[in-house]
Simulated assay, not measured.
Amino acid sequence: MPTEPPAPAGRPAAARPGRKLGPVAESVGSAHRAWLDPMRASYLASGLTLSELSTRLRFAKSKLSELLRGVGHYPRWEIVYMLARELGVPSWPLYRLWRQSAFEAHKNADWVENCTEHTPILTTAPTTPPLAHRAFCELVESDYSLFAQTFLDDEQRDAAVCDTFDILWLSWNDALASRDARRFSWNVLRATVMSRTPHRDGRPELSRAAFDTVALRSLTEPDHLMNQVAESLELFTAMSRLPASQLDVMVLRWLCGFLPETTSALLGTSLARVRSDERHATRFLESVLCPPLSTEGNTP
Protein backbone atom coordinates (compact mmCIF):
# COMPACT_ATOMS: atom_id res chain seq x y z
CA MET A 1 0.00 0.00 0.00
CA PRO A 2 1.23 3.59 -0.57
CA THR A 3 2.46 5.00 2.70
CA GLU A 4 3.67 8.26 1.20
CA PRO A 5 2.20 10.13 -1.78
CA PRO A 6 4.43 10.96 -4.76
CA ALA A 7 6.23 14.25 -4.44
CA PRO A 8 4.09 17.16 -5.69
CA ALA A 9 5.07 19.00 -8.84
CA GLY A 10 4.74 22.74 -9.12
CA ARG A 11 2.30 24.08 -11.69
CA PRO A 12 2.00 27.81 -12.30
CA ALA A 13 -1.45 29.21 -12.80
CA ALA A 14 -2.10 30.29 -16.36
CA ALA A 15 -4.03 33.38 -17.30
CA ARG A 16 -5.57 33.88 -20.71
CA PRO A 17 -7.38 36.71 -22.44
CA GLY A 18 -10.81 36.44 -23.99
CA ARG A 19 -14.01 34.69 -22.99
CA LYS A 20 -13.78 31.90 -20.44
CA LEU A 21 -14.44 28.35 -21.55
CA GLY A 22 -18.01 27.38 -20.75
CA PRO A 23 -18.91 24.46 -18.46
CA VAL A 24 -19.31 20.87 -19.59
CA ALA A 25 -22.82 20.20 -20.90
CA GLU A 26 -25.13 18.45 -18.44
CA SER A 27 -25.90 15.80 -21.06
CA VAL A 28 -22.29 14.56 -21.11
CA GLY A 29 -22.08 11.08 -19.58
CA SER A 30 -19.48 9.71 -17.19
CA ALA A 31 -17.54 7.80 -19.87
CA HIS A 32 -17.24 10.95 -22.00
CA ARG A 33 -16.20 13.04 -18.99
CA ALA A 34 -13.51 10.48 -18.15
CA TRP A 35 -11.35 11.88 -20.97
CA LEU A 36 -12.98 15.29 -21.42
CA ASP A 37 -12.26 16.58 -17.90
CA PRO A 38 -8.49 15.87 -18.10
CA MET A 39 -8.42 17.39 -21.60
CA ARG A 40 -10.09 20.56 -20.31
CA ALA A 41 -7.67 20.69 -17.38
CA SER A 42 -4.71 20.47 -19.78
CA TYR A 43 -6.19 23.25 -21.91
CA LEU A 44 -6.77 25.52 -18.90
CA ALA A 45 -3.24 24.89 -17.63
CA SER A 46 -1.64 25.51 -21.04
CA GLY A 47 -2.31 29.26 -21.15
CA LEU A 48 -3.38 28.93 -24.79
CA THR A 49 -6.54 30.55 -26.08
CA LEU A 50 -9.10 28.97 -28.36
CA SER A 51 -8.07 31.45 -31.04
CA GLU A 52 -4.45 30.31 -30.82
CA LEU A 53 -5.45 26.66 -30.95
CA SER A 54 -7.75 27.37 -33.87
CA THR A 55 -4.85 28.91 -35.81
CA ARG A 56 -2.48 26.05 -34.98
CA LEU A 57 -4.95 23.28 -35.76
CA ARG A 58 -6.74 25.06 -38.63
CA PHE A 59 -10.01 24.15 -37.00
CA ALA A 60 -12.89 26.48 -36.20
CA LYS A 61 -12.76 28.04 -32.75
CA SER A 62 -16.45 27.32 -32.24
CA LYS A 63 -15.86 23.62 -32.91
CA LEU A 64 -13.00 23.50 -30.42
CA SER A 65 -15.22 25.14 -27.85
CA GLU A 66 -17.95 22.58 -28.52
CA LEU A 67 -15.46 19.73 -28.15
CA LEU A 68 -14.17 21.04 -24.83
CA ARG A 69 -17.70 21.48 -23.51
CA GLY A 70 -19.09 18.20 -24.81
CA VAL A 71 -21.63 20.00 -26.99
CA GLY A 72 -22.97 18.66 -30.28
CA HIS A 73 -22.02 15.38 -31.93
CA TYR A 74 -19.49 13.04 -30.33
CA PRO A 75 -16.10 14.21 -31.66
CA ARG A 76 -14.10 12.21 -34.17
CA TRP A 77 -10.72 10.92 -33.11
CA GLU A 78 -8.83 13.09 -35.63
CA ILE A 79 -9.65 16.37 -33.88
CA VAL A 80 -9.30 14.88 -30.41
CA TYR A 81 -5.87 13.58 -31.38
CA MET A 82 -4.73 16.91 -32.88
CA LEU A 83 -5.88 18.83 -29.83
CA ALA A 84 -4.23 16.34 -27.49
CA ARG A 85 -0.95 16.67 -29.39
CA GLU A 86 -0.99 20.46 -29.01
CA LEU A 87 -1.76 20.18 -25.29
CA GLY A 88 0.77 17.44 -24.59
CA VAL A 89 -1.87 14.91 -23.55
CA PRO A 90 -0.70 11.27 -23.87
CA SER A 91 -2.47 9.48 -26.71
CA TRP A 92 -2.77 5.90 -25.50
CA PRO A 93 -4.94 6.38 -22.41
CA LEU A 94 -6.88 9.12 -24.18
CA TYR A 95 -7.63 6.83 -27.13
CA ARG A 96 -8.80 3.96 -24.94
CA LEU A 97 -11.17 6.24 -23.03
CA TRP A 98 -12.36 8.00 -26.22
CA ARG A 99 -13.07 4.65 -27.91
CA GLN A 100 -15.02 3.26 -24.98
CA SER A 101 -17.03 6.46 -24.73
CA ALA A 102 -17.75 6.33 -28.48
CA PHE A 103 -19.44 2.96 -28.09
CA GLU A 104 -21.45 4.26 -25.16
CA ALA A 105 -22.49 7.15 -27.43
CA HIS A 106 -23.91 4.46 -29.76
CA LYS A 107 -21.19 4.77 -32.38
CA ASN A 108 -20.54 1.47 -34.14
CA ALA A 109 -17.21 -0.24 -34.76
CA ASP A 110 -17.09 0.93 -38.39
CA TRP A 111 -17.41 4.56 -37.31
CA VAL A 112 -14.64 4.15 -34.72
CA GLU A 113 -12.31 2.44 -37.19
CA ASN A 114 -13.02 5.05 -39.86
CA CYS A 115 -12.04 7.78 -37.38
CA THR A 116 -8.62 6.23 -36.80
CA GLU A 117 -7.85 4.79 -40.25
CA HIS A 118 -5.70 7.73 -41.34
CA THR A 119 -4.77 9.12 -37.94
CA PRO A 120 -1.99 7.64 -35.82
CA ILE A 121 -2.91 6.72 -32.28
CA LEU A 122 0.64 7.02 -31.05
CA THR A 123 2.72 10.20 -31.09
CA THR A 124 6.36 10.98 -30.54
CA ALA A 125 5.47 11.59 -26.87
CA PRO A 126 6.13 8.76 -24.40
CA THR A 127 3.64 5.90 -24.78
CA THR A 128 4.22 4.52 -21.30
CA PRO A 129 3.09 6.22 -18.10
CA PRO A 130 5.58 8.10 -15.92
CA LEU A 131 7.57 5.79 -13.67
CA ALA A 132 5.94 7.15 -10.52
CA HIS A 133 2.48 6.55 -12.02
CA ARG A 134 3.32 2.96 -12.92
CA ALA A 135 4.77 2.25 -9.49
CA PHE A 136 1.75 3.74 -7.76
CA CYS A 137 -0.72 1.75 -9.87
CA GLU A 138 1.13 -1.51 -9.28
CA LEU A 139 1.02 -0.80 -5.56
CA VAL A 140 -2.74 -0.21 -5.35
CA GLU A 141 -4.15 -2.35 -8.17
CA SER A 142 -5.18 -5.38 -6.12
CA ASP A 143 -6.64 -3.21 -3.35
CA TYR A 144 -8.59 -1.10 -5.84
CA SER A 145 -9.93 -4.29 -7.41
CA LEU A 146 -11.22 -5.54 -4.05
CA PHE A 147 -13.10 -2.29 -3.51
CA ALA A 148 -14.54 -2.30 -7.05
CA GLN A 149 -15.65 -5.92 -6.76
CA THR A 150 -17.99 -4.98 -3.92
CA PHE A 151 -20.14 -3.13 -6.45
CA LEU A 152 -19.35 -4.67 -9.85
CA ASP A 153 -18.99 -8.03 -11.57
CA ASP A 154 -15.53 -9.25 -12.59
CA GLU A 155 -15.57 -7.72 -16.09
CA GLN A 156 -16.87 -4.35 -14.93
CA ARG A 157 -14.44 -4.38 -12.01
CA ASP A 158 -11.41 -4.84 -14.27
CA ALA A 159 -12.67 -2.17 -16.69
CA ALA A 160 -13.25 0.31 -13.85
CA VAL A 161 -9.75 -0.15 -12.45
CA CYS A 162 -8.20 0.10 -15.93
CA ASP A 163 -10.15 3.28 -16.65
CA THR A 164 -9.09 4.71 -13.30
CA PHE A 165 -5.44 4.26 -14.17
CA ASP A 166 -5.93 5.75 -17.66
CA ILE A 167 -7.68 8.80 -16.21
CA LEU A 168 -4.96 9.10 -13.60
CA TRP A 169 -2.31 8.98 -16.35
CA LEU A 170 -4.06 11.81 -18.19
CA SER A 171 -4.32 13.77 -14.92
CA TRP A 172 -0.97 12.83 -13.39
CA ASN A 173 0.29 16.41 -13.14
CA ASP A 174 -2.91 17.39 -11.37
CA ALA A 175 -2.52 14.45 -9.01
CA LEU A 176 1.02 15.50 -8.13
CA ALA A 177 -0.06 19.11 -7.65
CA SER A 178 -2.91 18.09 -5.33
CA ARG A 179 -2.62 17.95 -1.55
CA ASP A 180 -2.31 14.15 -1.62
CA ALA A 181 -1.99 12.06 -4.80
CA ARG A 182 -3.47 9.06 -2.99
CA ARG A 183 -6.64 10.99 -2.22
CA PHE A 184 -6.78 12.33 -5.78
CA SER A 185 -6.46 8.80 -7.16
CA TRP A 186 -9.07 7.41 -4.77
CA ASN A 187 -11.56 10.06 -5.88
CA VAL A 188 -10.98 8.99 -9.49
CA LEU A 189 -11.50 5.33 -8.60
CA ARG A 190 -14.64 6.02 -6.63
CA ALA A 191 -16.20 8.16 -9.36
CA THR A 192 -15.36 5.51 -11.98
CA VAL A 193 -16.79 2.65 -9.91
CA MET A 194 -19.93 4.56 -8.97
CA SER A 195 -20.59 5.54 -12.59
CA ARG A 196 -20.87 1.81 -13.38
CA THR A 197 -22.73 0.78 -10.23
CA PRO A 198 -26.50 0.28 -10.35
CA HIS A 199 -28.26 2.81 -8.11
CA ARG A 200 -31.67 2.79 -6.47
CA ASP A 201 -33.17 6.00 -5.10
CA GLY A 202 -29.79 7.67 -5.61
CA ARG A 203 -27.92 5.10 -3.52
CA PRO A 204 -25.47 2.45 -4.77
CA GLU A 205 -26.71 -1.12 -4.67
CA LEU A 206 -24.64 -3.54 -2.60
CA SER A 207 -26.67 -6.66 -3.29
CA ARG A 208 -23.65 -8.39 -4.88
CA ALA A 209 -21.78 -8.04 -1.62
CA ALA A 210 -24.70 -9.51 0.29
CA PHE A 211 -24.35 -12.77 -1.64
CA ASP A 212 -20.56 -12.89 -1.38
CA THR A 213 -19.89 -12.68 2.34
CA VAL A 214 -17.72 -15.15 4.21
CA ALA A 215 -20.73 -16.08 6.32
CA LEU A 216 -22.73 -17.16 3.26
CA ARG A 217 -19.89 -19.17 1.78
CA SER A 218 -19.55 -21.11 5.06
CA LEU A 219 -23.24 -22.10 5.29
CA THR A 220 -24.64 -25.30 3.81
CA GLU A 221 -28.11 -25.72 5.34
CA PRO A 222 -30.82 -24.03 3.18
CA ASP A 223 -32.73 -22.53 6.13
CA HIS A 224 -29.61 -20.97 7.61
CA LEU A 225 -28.53 -19.78 4.19
CA MET A 226 -31.80 -17.97 3.51
CA ASN A 227 -31.76 -16.36 6.95
CA GLN A 228 -28.21 -15.13 6.39
CA VAL A 229 -29.11 -13.78 2.94
CA ALA A 230 -31.97 -11.78 4.43
CA GLU A 231 -29.74 -10.40 7.20
CA SER A 232 -27.00 -9.52 4.73
CA LEU A 233 -29.40 -7.76 2.38
CA GLU A 234 -30.73 -5.73 5.29
CA LEU A 235 -27.21 -4.80 6.37
CA PHE A 236 -26.03 -3.75 2.92
CA THR A 237 -29.20 -1.82 2.22
CA ALA A 238 -28.50 0.14 5.39
CA MET A 239 -24.84 0.59 4.38
CA SER A 240 -25.88 2.13 1.06
CA ARG A 241 -27.45 4.99 3.02
CA LEU A 242 -24.11 6.00 4.56
CA PRO A 243 -22.30 9.19 3.43
CA ALA A 244 -19.63 8.51 0.82
CA SER A 245 -16.63 8.72 3.15
CA GLN A 246 -18.24 6.43 5.73
CA LEU A 247 -19.32 3.92 3.08
CA ASP A 248 -15.78 3.75 1.68
CA VAL A 249 -14.34 3.12 5.12
CA MET A 250 -16.88 0.41 5.92
CA VAL A 251 -16.35 -1.36 2.60
CA LEU A 252 -12.58 -1.32 3.04
CA ARG A 253 -12.69 -2.30 6.72
CA TRP A 254 -15.62 -4.73 6.88
CA LEU A 255 -15.83 -6.24 3.40
CA CYS A 256 -12.23 -6.05 2.19
CA GLY A 257 -10.76 -6.71 5.63
CA PHE A 258 -8.14 -3.96 5.57
CA LEU A 259 -6.53 -2.64 8.73
CA PRO A 260 -7.24 0.99 9.67
CA GLU A 261 -3.70 1.95 8.64
CA THR A 262 -4.13 0.39 5.18
CA THR A 263 -7.51 2.05 4.79
CA SER A 264 -6.00 5.40 5.72
CA ALA A 265 -3.24 5.02 3.13
CA LEU A 266 -5.60 3.97 0.36
CA LEU A 267 -8.01 6.82 1.01
CA GLY A 268 -5.24 9.39 1.45
CA THR A 269 -6.81 10.56 4.69
CA SER A 270 -5.77 10.55 8.33
CA LEU A 271 -6.04 7.54 10.60
CA ALA A 272 -8.16 9.62 12.98
CA ARG A 273 -10.64 10.37 10.16
CA VAL A 274 -10.88 6.67 9.30
CA ARG A 275 -11.63 5.75 12.89
CA SER A 276 -14.15 8.57 13.22
CA ASP A 277 -15.95 7.54 10.02
CA GLU A 278 -16.05 3.91 11.13
CA ARG A 279 -17.37 4.85 14.55
CA HIS A 280 -20.17 7.05 13.16
CA ALA A 281 -21.08 4.48 10.51
CA THR A 282 -21.25 1.69 13.08
CA ARG A 283 -23.54 3.72 15.30
CA PHE A 284 -25.84 4.45 12.38
CA LEU A 285 -26.01 0.81 11.32
CA GLU A 286 -26.71 -0.30 14.88
CA SER A 287 -29.52 2.25 15.16
CA VAL A 288 -31.10 0.96 11.94
CA LEU A 289 -30.60 -2.77 12.44
CA CYS A 290 -31.00 -2.92 16.23
CA PRO A 291 -33.31 -0.03 17.21
CA PRO A 292 -34.04 0.37 20.93
CA LEU A 293 -37.30 -1.17 22.09
CA SER A 294 -40.12 1.34 22.55
CA THR A 295 -41.75 1.47 25.96
CA GLU A 296 -44.77 3.49 24.82
CA GLY A 297 -48.08 1.89 25.82
CA ASN A 298 -46.50 -0.51 28.29
CA THR A 299 -48.14 -0.74 31.70
CA PRO A 300 -45.92 -0.62 34.77
Results as ranks from 00 to 15, higher is better:
181 A>I: 04
71 V>Q: 09
99 R>F: 06
95 Y>A: 12
19 R>G: 02
214 V>Q: 10
251 V>R: 05
118 H>L: 14
83 L>Y: 12
241 R>K: 12
141 E>C: 06
90 P>V: 12
134 R>A: 15
56 R>Y: 04
47 G>L: 05
38 P>A: 04
65 S>K: 15
297 G>T: 08
57 L>G: 06
202 G>N: 05
20 K>L: 12
207 S>Y: 11
219 L>A: 07
191 A>Y: 03
130 P>D: 01
92 W>I: 11
160 A>C: 02
42 S>Y: 01
65 S>F: 10
129 P>V: 00
258 F>P: 03
266 L>D: 01
190 R>M: 09
200 R>A: 12
264 S>I: 00
206 L>S: 05
28 V>R: 04
281 A>D: 02
194 M>C: 10
152 L>M: 05
267 L>E: 00
219 L>Q: 11
28 V>W: 04
111 W>I: 07
254 W>K: 09
225 L>D: 07
110 D>W: 14
67 L>Y: 09
275 R>Y: 00
279 R>V: 00
232 S>Y: 06
60 A>T: 14
135 A>P: 00
21 L>W: 04
139 L>W: 04
48 L>G: 01
21 L>T: 02
263 T>H: 02
300 P>L: 11
286 E>H: 05
169 W>H: 08
275 R>T: 00
59 F>C: 15
61 K>H: 09
268 G>H: 04
155 E>M: 15
241 R>L: 13
199 H>A: 14
255 L>R: 10
37 D>R: 10
3 T>C: 08
231 E>N: 11
214 V>F: 09
118 H>P: 00
65 S>W: 14
225 L>E: 13
257 G>M: 02
194 M>K: 07
249 V>N: 00
263 T>R: 01
97 L>S: 15
229 V>Q: 10
177 A>Y: 10
108 N>A: 07
141 E>N: 10
163 D>Q: 14
282 T>G: 04
10 G>R: 11
191 A>R: 11
261 E>G: 02
113 E>H: 15
64 L>A: 10
77 W>V: 11
268 G>F: 02
120 P>K: 08
120 P>L: 10
44 L>I: 03
153 D>Y: 06
103 F>V: 03
